[in-house]
Amino acid sequence: MNPVPSLANLHFSDEERNTLYRIIASRRDMRHFIPNSTLDDATITRLLQAVHHAPSVGLMQPWRFRRIHDNTQREQIAALVMAERDATAEALGERATEFLRLKVEGIRDCAELWVASVAPDDGTVFGRRTMPEAMALCSVACAIQNLWLATRAENLGMGWVSMFEPTALAELLALPSGSKPIAILCIGQVEAFYPAPMLELEGWRQGGSLETVWIDGGGKLSV
């Protein structure tokens, strides 16, 4: 039996490195899923392990993921999203009609529906004394990104739905006091991944170039 390699000394090949960058570049916020599909327990376990390997400030690990089994609850969650969709359309004014043509969720068709929440504050001070809420939120976002990349590596789609009123969703799921849901996550098989971000394909918005977010004080690196 081969010994398990030490993670501290593990080096990755050029091929493995390039695969990671391909996964990052091909990740998409998916809205279209194959109905009536399922995920096996082994796949779900791998995804959860990816979630729990995420970094967190002060090792607080403030992420909590709720798996939605009940179809009635799916419908209730979908109703919350549709209510916020309508409110968003009203707030958009002249772009309302254009917005309402967009598909904003795959709640009814996805194989798995999870809700990601920020756990109640556990009193962690290390690393978050000046920004306690922000650092907890950022830590959960890291866990969600791990999940997103893991689903793509599994050739599964994932969509992050943010259109909901957090208090209403927390009450619906009877979350512990102090919890705050931040994401409804649709996960499952897809017929194809979008060749570019869906909002670009739909003409809603174009992503900026790398130059728009890169500030190089030395002015030496060309991107």
Rank of each mutant, 00 (worst) to 15 (best):
P55N: 02
L185H: 12
E202V: 00
R27T: 06
H11M: 06
E133H: 10
V223Q: 12
H52A: 01
V223I: 14
V115H: 15
G58H: 05
I107S: 05
T72H: 15
A183V: 07
R108V: 00
E154K: 08
A170W: 11
Y21H: 12
D29Q: 07
D86A: 13
A170L: 10
A183Y: 04
G217W: 09
Q76P: 11
Q73I: 01
I182H: 11
R101L: 08
G159F: 09
M131V: 00
A170F: 12
S209W: 02
E105T: 02
A50I: 04
N9Y: 10
W160N: 04
I23V: 10
R64C: 03
R95H: 14
L185F: 10
T88G: 09
L137N: 05
Y194L: 03
L199A: 06
R101N: 12
E75N: 10
E94A: 11
R28K: 13
Q189L: 07
C142E: 01
Q76I: 00
N71F: 13
A183E: 06
L47Q: 12
R85W: 11
E15T: 06
W63C: 01
E112T: 01
L210K: 12
A96V: 01
L149D: 09
R46V: 01
T72C: 07
A91N: 07
A50E: 11
Q73L: 08
A78S: 15
P62M: 03
P132R: 07
L201I: 01
G188Y: 03
T151Q: 03
N155K: 09
W214D: 00
N18V: 02
V4N: 12
F33M: 02
V161W: 14
G58A: 04
E200C: 04
E133T: 02
V125R: 05
D14I: 02
V140T: 04
W204A: 04
H32R: 11
R128W: 03
F193H: 11
G219F: 10
R74L: 03
W148L: 08
L172V: 06
R128T: 01
P181K: 09
W148F: 12
T167A: 15
V104C: 15
R27A: 09
M1T: 03
E211Y: 07
G188C: 01
N9A: 07
R128I: 00
I24D: 09
A153N: 11
F193V: 00
P120K: 08
E75P: 05
F164I: 00
V125D: 02
A183W: 04
V213N: 09
Q61W: 05
E112K: 06
S56Q: 04
G188K: 01
L175S: 01
V161C: 15
T43M: 07
L113C: 12
S162H: 10
I215V: 08
S117P: 09
N36Y: 13
T130F: 10
S139V: 00
N9W: 05
H11T: 08
E211Q: 15
R205D: 00
M158V: 03
H32Q: 07
A83R: 13
N36E: 15
Y21N: 05
M82C: 00
W148G: 03
